[in-house]
Design a protein around this nucleic acid. Structure first.
Lengths: 182, 182
DNA sequence: ACAACCATGTAAGTAGTTACATGATTTA
DNA sequence: TAAATCATGTAACTACTTACATGGTTGT
């Protein structure tokens, strides 16, 4: 289970409140592990209960924000989890289910939606590339920076894949749905 | 939500029992939408309740297998769902969370586990490629066959991506964890 | 002071996972 | 006929989603 460990990681990098985490999640880690604010608040409460994190008393935050920081037990748990072997998890991809369904009950007007999705993937790719250029442009980075760059790179590779895949799909649809062609 | 639609798709292709579906899911559609047998039985019961599928009376199956087939309402629902626009869903990838965690609490001995995962990805790629060669070798296939091939192709592209990514990760770890180098 | 927004949270429901149960069929 | 396996299921739990609530802060 990844959410608590993703949160501890974010908190080790920078003690934060729930809402801070929610907005940081929509960048960085959130590219590979999305979470809503409700999940985040609940998980923070659980982890505080478990003694993995503590919230600084609100008076030190001088407002209503509750800033959490990682306790030794939380860091130890993160280290334990990181050292565990994991198998690659089965991927879930709703669009593949839809493609297979379309193959048996189609044709519907799939191409338009693929075009729309293609534009979204191109946007996301451009975003990732601009982040890479901004944050990881230089040479001789630290081990930590290299690994963080690697994760971003996975995002770039994924988006590139879906762009390539969408184009392949459009080509097939253009040919097979055109009454003049095969 | 994809599971019921994945099941209807499989049942349109071939009326089946729950256990048949479970084993077919571990091939084909299951590459992109995994489900346990418990989920499948529950979902079949729900869909029968909803009038989307019906089970042939067990005497016609002459055993304990309950064979389900799709009713018009089920096919209509599948067509409705297929025609809907979907945004690309946020990807969840536990390994990326782990990499980012390792960046802040590492180094641990990540490389061994990546090697192990790499071997699994190579196996899966070989499997997909053999299926592609067996089922989709010929030219001039139907629209349906082309789309089914496309889905398999997505699997091949994904596995290829993770192989490439794993190799990239190993290269970084080999350099940054070697005390003689950077 | 009133409206808009921000940060935190509760509640209810759905999807997915893990562990176990039961009877029927095949195999040793 | 006993053991192993198969097909179908139940139960309990965890993760995630969606809708709503509350009180504090900021802007006008």
């Amino acid at each position: 289970m990844s959410l608590p460990h993703a949160l501890i990681t974010a908190l080790v990098e920078q003690p934060s409140s729930g809402s801070d985490l929610a907005s940081r999640f929509d960048r960085s880690i959130g590219y590979f592990w999305h979470a809503t604010h409700q999940q985040i608040y609940r998980e923070l409460a659980r982890m505080e209960e478990a003694g993995w994190v503590e919230s600084l008393p609100p008076e030190s935050g001088r407002g209503r924000k509750k800033v959490y920081q990682v306790l030794p037990a939380g860091r130890a748990e993160l280290q334990r989890w990181v050292a565990e072997d994991q198998d690659p998890q089965p991927q879930r991809n709703e669009f593949m289910v839809r493609l297979r369904a379309e193959a048996v009950v189609g044709p519907t007007g799939l191409a338009d939606d693929i075009q729309r999705r293609l534009a979204l993937h191109r946007e996301k790719l451009a975003l990732y590339q601009s982040i890479a250029a901004r944050d990881f442009g230089r040479e001789g980075a630290s081990r930590k920076a290299q690994l963080q760059h690697l994760v971003l790179d996975a995002g770039i590779m994924q988006e590139t894949l879906w762009i390539e895949f969408s184009e392949k799909a459009l080509k097939i649809l253009a040919h097979s749905d055109d009454p003049l062609l095969g």
